[in-house]
Amino acid sequence: MNRYHVLPTILLVTMLVTAKPSAASESKLGAAIAGATEPVSGQLVDAVIPLPENTVLAREKHPSGSFWVKTRKDQIERFRCSRCHSGKANQPQVNDGLKLAHGGINLSHGQQKLPCTTCHHKEQRDFLALEGGDKIDFDHAYQLCGQCHFRQKEDWIGGAHGKRDNYWDGDRVIWSCTECHNPHSPRFETRWPKTYSKTLNK
């Protein structure tokens, strides 16, 4: 078992012991929040909020309407894949080609090795593919990930997983799954912290 599995259970137990169940609705604040049921439409602050470049309209619905995701194709160095992967055979015929071309890819996604074509389209390499074979644009990889990780995708749409870009107000722009997760080894890497934190009373 890793930390992601252990954590919630232990925390929940401690929480129940140390904290009262959320008294949110009993308080003034709780009442204010509970009372705010009317969706707020449009931008609230008086400021210019530009839609960042390199975003696409998400192919998902959010209660507030449309939202945008940051694009990925412009970030993928080898795109377009069809420069090499084209023609009938669709495979460049080279010895050790996979290693030569994509040697940097070290699949470590879950316990079993997922074959490349679980995610990549079999014929058209410029696209990803759903289980049924439907083509998925690289900019909408969340549709692919959501196939297996529906809980995370739901939270991502709602806003508890992933990240909004830059502004809380105005048009909603969020990061796509692959902005944070390398699909081939999606776990976050360990690294040195940027700085340290002083003790609380300092």
Partner: peptide, 25 residues
Amino acid sequence: GSRVFGNLLDPNSEIRYVLKKKKVF
């Protein structure tokens, strides 16, 4: 993405989603 900031008075905001759907304290 561990940090969620937004408008508590907008029922569609991310922060409201967290308050509604997650175990919070």
